[in-house]
Amino acid sequence: MASPSDQDSKYDLSFKILLIGDSGVGKSSLILSFISASQETTAPTIGVDIKIKHLTVGGKRLKLTLWDTAGQERFRTLTNSFYRDAQGIMLVYDVTRRETLTNLTDLWAKEVELYSTNKDCVKMLVGNKLDCESDRVVTKEEAVALAGELGCLFAECSAKTRENVEKCFEQLALKIMEVPSLQKEKDKPMPIPNPPSAGSDSGGCC
């Protein structure tokens, strides 16, 4: 592809980070909060939203490509193809709804096992909606224990107040930088899936 633009030359490392978790836990809000400090309520995501954020961590200029997936059940099968080549995966749950955590262990963590192509990819368990402390049902302790079980990093944050939001992305990026097999400096531009030609509603997926 022909775009060695300014943007591309401004970073040292490029990471693909995937956010997964139940519908309504705040994946889109988290990304929005990280990128633009916006707190607007978001509509349900259809399929996937891709956003890019540049930041400097540990003296390196990073380009984070954030893949915001849909939590709707219908799209679970679709999500599979998004795991490819992800260096970081955030498993997001809602601290006020226990079932979002159980579904992470019952469903989403298994998806990660199944579909992620980078066996060394860094996973992080993220509890969102920390601002709703009074409604909290998942304690930090048990989530930490679960993160240990799943081999994940752990963070709690609030997309609404932006508490700890940047920190958890930075922490994830730092960890990815520590894993040598995940370092691919300035590889080819990230392929964005081409929309299939109109009218091809039959035929298998690949």
């Binding site: 799209f75 299939p196 298998g204």
Partner: peptide, 29 residues
């Protein structure tokens, strides 16, 4: 907090069946 657009959005992907998930995704809109 579910306005007409939101509720339509969560129902839409369930009203059609398409083999190819990506086409289904675009059609859902």
């Amino acid at each position: 907090k579910m306005n007409a657009r939101n509720i339509a959005m969560v129902f839409a992907p369930n009203m059609t069946q398409m083999a190819d998930p990506l086409t289904a995704l675009m059609y859902a809109v």
